[in-house]
Nucleic acid binder design. Sequence first.
DNA 1: TTTTGAGTTGTTCGA
DNA 2: GTCGAACAACTCAAA
Length: 485
Amino acid sequence: MNDNITLVWFRQDLRLADNPALKAAASGRVIPVYIHDPQAAGEWAMGGAAQWWLHHSLADLDRNLQALGSRLILRHGSAPAVLDDLIAEVGVSRVVWNRCYEPWAIARDRAVKGDLKARGLQVESFNASLLFEPWTIRSGAGGPFRVYTPFWRACRAAGGPSAPEAAPDRLEAPAVWPHSERLNDWHLLPTAPDWSGGLRTAWTPGEAAARDRLIAFLDRALGQYRDRRNEPGVPATSGLSPHLHWGEIGPRQVWSAVADRLETGAVAGREGQAETFLKEIVWREFSYHLLFHNPDLPHRPLNARFEDFPWTDDETGHLAAWQRGRTGYPIVDAGMRQLWATGWMHNRVRMVVASFLVKDLLLPWQAGEAWFWDTLVDADLASNSASWQWVAGCGADAAPYFRVFNPVLQGEKFDPAGAYVRHWVPEVARLPDRFVHRPWQAPGEVLEAAGVRLGETYPGPIVDHSEARARALAAFERIKQTDAA
DNA sequence: TTTTGAGTTGTTCGA
DNA sequence: GTCGAACAACTCAAA
């Protein structure tokens, strides 16, 4: 039975526009399907925040497909088995998808492709998630990059990414729809308790919301991006990371929208501000490039010397204090609480909290990576692992080991009026600016007037930063010696 | 082929 | 108070 039906397997490309697999299928009958397979990712199964996002994004995709006369078929189970079932049920002749780049997904997709082709089906995969495929950007010597700036230049030299394509106008339905499971039965949303209130306040998953967020960012913040993106108390960043992760919008769409503003003079005199934003988009590409060429990136330090780094055991409950935002450093605690409440953290603060975990607490970067994975709505294997390695100093083009963020100075520099810490750490909200990032240095009467009792209403610092910094530098000194020996 | 200069995000110290 | 130097080692790419 061959009805010339194309099965479009949606994964991290939950959108209709700029979706090459969907576009390729749209000339004939289409069955869009999403397969929920929590086991496939192994230890990188989605965290709770990611599942919350996925639920709403799938609901949105289904609505958008229905507007084109189609719908989204939901199935759970092992993807190869589910695809087999669908193919047998409805007589599919062709299967298409947009590529994923997690090592486990690459292995799965390669096996599926080989298997389906061997059985005579047409199978095609496309690029929806990246400006450039990781294997197409090469250094002068022909290999992958390990330093960002040459990678950026190589991307620029590759010319602009291809233009995004519009969504199909309509989609032809099959004569009979295969059965679909119900989204609610997947229990992706938290219940008992429902902790998703902060996520709902902060985010609207879905393709239209992604587009709205992009436009709002371009209108309001692109022209000051370079100067203000580091201020966590100001909405100066795009907030596109979860939308990009789930593919509700693609980097080509983002790139072309920025290029438009540049070409039309909408950011005249502020091109450098916009360029800094494009560089951030390319940092995402760089992370995918690194993961593709170094599949162990999520587990093992790129710089092998760090295998022997003397991380400490978490005997003191430091990890839990960090996770719950009770380190006694307001900027660190604000970030960790923002993460817990909203599933997202401002990038500047991600660097501060990561440096604190890895350098002040000497806990392994993988512990931070795992916590971020569990709690972020934008949890992305490539960006998360590349960024943690960068902070830890063991990654590509990494922060030098002696760069230890001082949480007080970082707070005072980037949140000088304390708006960010006051919002997320209300215990210290009534402290004056000059003590809001260093409550333990406030005189007793100032603390009292602000209603702060250190150790009771808010913790004292769990480590002394300057001692911790010295400890970190000494630890790095040890792996230097290990290497020389 | 070899050499050379440059490379996202910081802090501290001493002049 | 400000300012420059020092804090490694390694990759990349141009010369």
